[in-house]
Design a protein around this nucleic acid. Sequence first.
DNA 1: GTGAAAGCGCTAACAC
DNA 2: GTGTTAGCGCTTTCAC
Lengths: 342, 342
Amino acid sequence: MVSIYDISKVVGTSASTVSLVLTGRAEELRISQAKQKQILEVANRMGYIPNMSARKLSSRNLKHMPEIALFWSPAQHSIFLNIFMNVLQDMISKEEVREMRFTILPYRNGELEKLESVLTANYYNGVLVPPVFSEDLAFLTKTSIQVPVVLLYGDIPQFNLVSVDNFKVGTKIAHIFHRHGHTSVGIMMPVYKTPSLTIVQRNKGLSEACHNLDMKVKLYTSEMDLPPANKVEEGKIAAKKMLEEDSLPSALYIQNDSLALGALSVFSQQGIRIPEDMEIIVYGINDSLEIHHPSITTVCYPTEEISRACITVMATLLDRPGTAPMQRIIDTPFVFRESCRP
Amino acid sequence: MVSIYDISKVVGTSASTVSLVLTGRAEELRISQAKQKQILEVANRMGYIPNMSARKLSSRNLKHMPEIALFWSPAQHSIFLNIFMNVLQDMISKEEVREMRFTILPYRNGELEKLESVLTANYYNGVLVPPVFSEDLAFLTKTSIQVPVVLLYGDIPQFNLVSVDNFKVGTKIAHIFHRHGHTSVGIMMPVYKTPSLTIVQRNKGLSEACHNLDMKVKLYTSEMDLPPANKVEEGKIAAKKMLEEDSLPSALYIQNDSLALGALSVFSQQGIRIPEDMEIIVYGINDSLEIHHPSITTVCYPTEEISRACITVMATLLDRPGTAPMQRIIDTPFVFRESCRP
DNA sequence: GTGAAAGCGCTAACAC
DNA sequence: GTGTTAGCGCTTTCAC
């Protein structure tokens, strides 16, 4: 990489002159126009990119700020980032936690190990990992990381965990349906090549509890893997397939809000009455579920509390390196509406 | 701030030993257990936080990577970040642009200047600024920044711009309504203490064109500033107020998708037929608008193209510092559905 | 097993 | 106006 020293050699001046020009202080120190122009030109031609680590290091007036790596895959719910940043800003401005900054490291599910060098070299003061696939979890387990790691899913002893009890969410839903006297329960879920572990856990919690409570369980999917933007379409297909069958479950749990929107539009078209013909609970947060007729009962990931807990845990670990890993399990709230009463 | 040198003094060893222990290479270099334990303890007690700038600088094997500051306010549409990161990852993996990393700097609208030190000290290789308020734009204009700045809104000559023509969007809508023979047009918009400049521009384009085409324009809002999460409720209130008036516009443009969901639910309850009684165009992207009965015609911010252009512009400027500012105006696509045919 | 010393790329103080 | 020099905090090499 080209440094100001390289530029200074080409121009035939000292590195400090180059620095002065490139940081915009040429005028105040009265560097000659000709030299300024020449330095700028050479920098442009050589493709000089300032090394910010060096700059930060040498700047006397900068207070050092921890930098946290935030892994991010396309599969995460986009609202998370926004809420997380709002909560962060809020906590920092109220001085509830020390300042820190988050750098986003995009990765694709199952390919976390491509970022191995970032992790092993410990270039960040901490790492925040959203719910990842099992292969990513396996990779993390065997990687030696010397900075605090906060996971949003996955029970790895050496890491911190801030999560919800997905299994329990499933169990709770089963109990609600059982209390209402249902004997057959449907689960509608997206078709993933590899389903997310959180969905797997919720399915498992629901299925096992249903089994224990003598209710039948049936899975419904569109059986075709559409692009992520087409979840609504997937819901329509899944709902249509469901309606083609001999019997309908009298209670349905839908794993995703977009899926639900698609399914609900089909149900309404086909005259399925909700909750009379079928009670419905949806995992999700979409506004439309609230204003739908009838309004839809939801369970959803408590993004704000999770964010708050993440930030608190991270701050604690930054200030006290080597502290034993912590676990925070946040409760998942139900919002009961017309589609399924408590 | 505490450094490994501080720790070494307390422990009574050398800085390099501390470094070895703290980077997890104590075993391979056979540092004594006692010393390891002591160093770890002291580091924890003193609240040692490694300076990553120093670490990156001194690591021989690291290839330097540009770091870009991404300003982010709660008012931005959350989907943007997600799409932006997906596009980034895609472009990098296809080697269309050089690698770069984005660090999120949260700020509140109108308070961008609180981040002045970040900007003037030039601690990032580039800066990406989403649509900001006029006071933020004014602040940026008068701040001396020595690294490439890409704006998503605002015509400041010294900065780069990647944007849409909001005014033209308004004009286009006016022409569609005019072609359909409407003489009265409504604009429904959120109540903001300070409305976003993009909304102002679209309103302006629509109003001016309506005026030129001899159509009446009326603004509708809820007139109460609910929290951002209540945009749906705002839409309901605005719609109810609208229905209380003597006459209804025969064409309505709604500035925001959540607002539209609220308004549409009121219209449907009150038996307003769409598009017969009122044609509707919505600015937004929400899935529900597509599956609504009738389906809703939308215009929306072309996030993917904008992201792609931002990244391209940024990469160009990183590689060729001092290149003249660029402007990229992206076209805003209409999706015609039942609520308003072309 | 541990310490001394060089050097990463840059800024800033000071000398000329 | 421009160059020299001393660090910023850390890793790494090499000597002991």
